[in-house]
Write a protein that binds this DNA or RNA. Structure first.
Length: 850
RNA sequence: GGGCCUAUAGCUCAGUUGGCUAGAGCGCCGCCCUUACAAGGCGGAUGUCGGGGGUUCGAGUCCCUCUGGGCCCA
């Protein structure tokens, strides 16, 4: 075996262990996936990678969906694209604040001064320690940095081909600059505006909440039947689940068709306990079947109240404050002494307590009829909150998103059509959402940790803010914090002083920053040359539940700022389902952490499982698939080692035998199928065709030609097989490279230079040696070999058992193919005597064992 | 209440514009220590394609309807 030194780097016994750290480190160290900044737009493939919420926990879902993106990135890179594949960390917003509170046992108290010697408690204290806003933000930054390392470690172990030179944080300076600049542009163009309006309000977080952040939850409640007094002294009975809102009642409403109440429309009634005179109005939204068919309108109990309040131009009688408690002063519209006395009993109370008090009062006066009737109803919650939302009137900032203008809305719907969705049907979710919008995008949040609205307001001579007198910073001064910096033309001593200024205390919604990820990653306005090389981007990968938020808001910002789509394609990942359809939970002890998974099965194996999940399709968490992936990875190692040990070559001109030509034709077909599948973002299909070819290659073809490569048919025949083996191995490694990046890189390093991930994706014309031949010259022969194996198995013989005679009846063409390959066939089947007969009938085989 | 997805072997899933006898892997059963791999190989069994109706020469695939599961929204 003089030639065995041809591939000296092939190990004796290849193993999977250690490939992740070996190649993962190598890729990072060598900048293997560095983006070429000089690349022209048409050669770039840019990816708007989702910034994971670092304060959340690592989940197998991360592994799943981020792998999908990486498959596309690696394919595009091998196809010759300059791939821009950055990543950001979402460390902005409520999840981070909440995690810091729990982790350190602190809470933000904006009135406190910054303590530069502050040291965070090592153990969270039982009672939350109040700290200044700046100290709080510092803790947020400290904790998220640690979280980010954990994610980075996971993603590198998983083999994501991210360019680590382009990481960003949604709270970092660049993100703040971009968010503030984009907001100021929106403001200048009239797309951002402030308004005093009823706002959905979370009393726990004390912040306004946007439509996209709402969810309905079924909650128990009770209908209370309460008597109002008509002008003629008779009673009319309403039913309400929120009797505590009685003091804020501004009208009664019934359906215009409801005969029971027709005579009341246009008249007034008197509220119980508080003796306020309110009108009775008619509106089609009232369901005559619900309750007594007549309801009280309060400011505000729910969103329908807001509609009625607006349409009937009713007064605002705010009752609930920002803390969720009843206001601390007797409202001006409650005038009688008895009513004032009653109101004193609920001042400052939570709505729950106020309800108990008023129900008891109503019982005493007899205005509550019967016992409350328990019901279950849908109540609006902030998706991250624990208490039902209240509606309070506040001044907030909005960005136009088509929620109030048909023209913009239809343009945004057109953007949805322009975007290529993978899978296509996900577009419907976008359309449903946009069509169902009922207001503009509320972007101001009353939080501490986030990107501040870059605004100040002038104070009048009395020291009251004049919100129409907005002071904006110069773009060059961004990012700014209006709470700690004074606007130009003022100095800090004028803060909160008459004729001075105040800073806007609010921060922007986390989506107001996330909606700019293409601009942040692409250094918009900071390096516009760079930006225009990568924008519009090629792909936004994400999951389906945030189409209404992240995807839509990004489309809005890009449409407003660039008058274009932010990306050409979006691919929507499905969810991970538990195999037993039960939620994984810590209490059950069956939580699988992704890092352990990668260690147990190997990253390539876990990626294989992920790759089996098609875009948009929910996939079961299935360690069985990972075992198969692991087996595939091991098989690639062994089969490649074997091919190389047979002195495989890449000499196309050596291929002379029909079975070898046919193998390459078959392979070329696989390449074409895999390529077109990848072009359609159907990576699973690409993997499947490569995999099934690979197994038939090792099981059938390699077995068939093994003896020939040893030289039993002479050097020329051996060379033909060695070239076919080499070309096939070479091509298969590339086809598997996006899926199984570690093992393919390992094998590549045995006999080739550089990284396989920077090689060109195979093309069918580079592979074929005799394209007109087709593939049947091989498949017809391996089918016969399979028949021989079957007979041996049926007779409980070993595969190398001798066949006394093999007789074949087949068409002229098949017989010719068998004749061409008969030496391979005889050697592989250990056949002593081969008889060939031409027939018109189907191929028939008779095997006689020794 | 509206929208979307989904139902195929014990399990996880393919099945393209309707077209030969509906496939794969796992699992199961049987066999083989074969000098790449026993963490391997070879072979086998397994289906009322959720139910009902319709279109068609022909339906897992298209239409209607019912039922179960999931998601989004109201």
């Amino acid at each position: 075996m003089a030639e065995s030194a041809r591939y000296p780097r092939v190990p004796e016994k290849p193993v999977l262990d250690g490939v992740e750290s070996k190649w993962g480190n190598s890729w990072v160290k060598n900048n293997t996936f560095a983006f070429d900044k000089t690349a022209t737009k048409d050669s770039v493939y840019s990816i708007d990678t989702p910034p994971p919420t670092v304060s959340g926990s690592l989940h197998v879902g991360h592994v799943f969906s981020y792998t999908h993106t990486d498959l596309i990135a690696r394919y595009q890179r091998m196809s010759g694209k300059k791939v821009f594949y950055p990543i950001g960390w979402d460390d902005n917003g409520l999840p981070t604040e909440r995690r810091v509170q729990n982790y350190f046992g602190v809470r933000c108290e904006p009135s406190l001064a910054y303590d530069k010697n502050f040291v965070a408690p090592t153990e969270p204290s039982e009672k939350q320690l109040p700290i200044s806003r700046k100290n709080f933000v510092e803790l947020c930054e400290k904790l998220t940095q640690e979280d980010e390392k954990v994610f980075e470690n996971l993603f590198q172990t998983l083999g994501l081909s991210i360019d680590w030179n382009y990481t960003y944080q949604t709270i970092d300076k660049r993100a703040r600059t971009v968010s503030q600049k984009a907001f100021l542009r929106n403001l200048k163009r009239g797309e951002a505006y402030q308004a005093e309006a009823p706002t959905l309000w979370d009393i726990t977080f004390r912040t306004a909440v946007a439509q996209a952040e709402l969810e309905d939850r079924e909650r128990p409640g009770a209908f209370h039947k309460i008597a109002f007094k008509k002008q003629n002294g008779e009673q009319v009975f309403i039913e309400t689940t929120r009797p505590e809102l009685l003091p804020s009642c501004v009208a009664l409403v019934a359906n215009p068709e409801d005969a029971r109440y027709k005579e009341l429309f246009g008249k007034t009634v008197i509220t119980p306990l508080f003796e306020v005179e309110v009108p009775v109005v008619a509106h089609h939204l009232v369901d005559p079947e619900k309750g007594s068919g007549i309801a009280m309108i309060c400011t505000f109990g729910d969103l329908t109240d807001v509609i009625w309040w607006r349409e009937f131009d009713l007064p605002t009688r705010g009752l609930i404050g920002w803390d969720g408690r009843i206001v601390s002063e007797n409202p001006e519209w409650i005038t009688s002494n008895k009513a004032k006395e009653t109101f004193q009993k609920i001042i400052g109370k939570t709505s729950h307590t106020a309800r108990e008090v008023l129900v008891s009062e109503l019982k005493t006066t007899g205005e509550l009829v019967g016992e409350p009737k328990p019901i279950t109803h849908a109540v609006k919650f902030f998706e991250k909150g624990d208490k039902p939302l209240e509606i309070v009137t506040t001044r907030q900032w909005y960005i136009r998103n088509g929620g109030r203008e048909q023209e913009l809305r239809s343009k945004l719907l057109d953007r949805g059509v322009e975007l290529k969705w993978h899978p296509e049907y996900m577009k419907v979710r976008y359309e449903n959402w946009v069509e169902g919008l009922n207001g503009d995008w509320l972007i101001s949040r009353q939080r501490f940790f986030g990107v501040p609205l870059p605004l100040w307001y002038k104070l009048d001579a009395n020291g009251n803010p004049d919100y129409s007198q907005i002071i904006t910073p110069a773009e060059s001064a961004l990012p700014i914090d209006p709470q700690s910096e004074a606007p130009s033309g003022f100095d800090e001593s004028q803060r909160n002083k008459p004729n001075g200024f105040i800073g806007d205390p609010d921060v922007m919604d986390t989506w107001a920053t996330s909606s700019l990820t293409p601009q942040i990653a692409g250094s918009w306005e900071l390096d516009n040359d760079f930006f225009h090389r990568i924008f519009p981007m090629d792909l936004r990968p994400q999951s389906h539940e945030i189409i209404r938020t992240w995807l839509f808001s990004t489309v809005v910002r890009s449409h407003l700022e660039e008058n274009s789509l932010p990306w050409k394609n979006t691919s929507i990942s499905g969810w991970i389902l538990d195999p037993d359809r039960k939620k994984m939970s810590k209490s059950k002890g069956n939580v699988v952490t992704p890092i352990d998974l990668l260690e147990e099965y190997g990253s390539d194996a876990v990626r294989y499982w992920a790759a089996m999940g098609r875009p948009g399709t929910d996939t079961a968490f299935d360690t069985g698939q990972m075992k198969i992936g692991r087996r595939l990875a091991i098989k690639i190692l062994n089969a490649s080692k074997f091919s190389l040990s047979l002195n495989a070559t890449l000499n196309k001109s050596d291929v002379s035998q029909d079975v070898d030509h046919a193998l390459l034709n078959n392979l070329a077909q696989v390449v074409e199928t895999a390529t077109s599948a990848f072009e359609k973002y159907e990576y699973t299909r690409a993997l499947e065709v490569a995999e099934s070819f690979f197994w038939s290659f090792t099981d059938d073809y390699v077995e068939l030609v093994k003896e020939r490569t040893y030289g039993n048919q002479g050097e020329e025949a051996a060379k033909s097989a060695r070239a076919a083996l080499g070309i096939t191995t070479h091509t298969l490694l590339k086809l598997f490279a996006p899926f199984i990046p570690f093992v393919t890189e390992e094998v590549w390093s045995w006999w080739q230079e550089g990284s396989i991930h920077l090689q060109s994706w195979p093309k069918s014309f580079e592979i074929t040696t005799k394209p007109d031949l087709g593939a049947s010259a091989l498949t017809n022969v391996t089918a016969i070999l399979a028949d021989v194996r079957k007979v041996k198995t049926e007779n409980k013989q070993s595969m190398k058992a001798e066949v006394k005679s093999l007789e074949i009846w087949a068409s002229k063409e098949v017989i010719a193919q068998v004749e061409n390959a008969q030496k391979d066939l005889i050697a592989a089947g250990n056949i002593k005597d081969l008889k060939l007969n031409i027939t018109q009938d189907e191929t028939k085989v008779k095997v006689e064992l020794a």
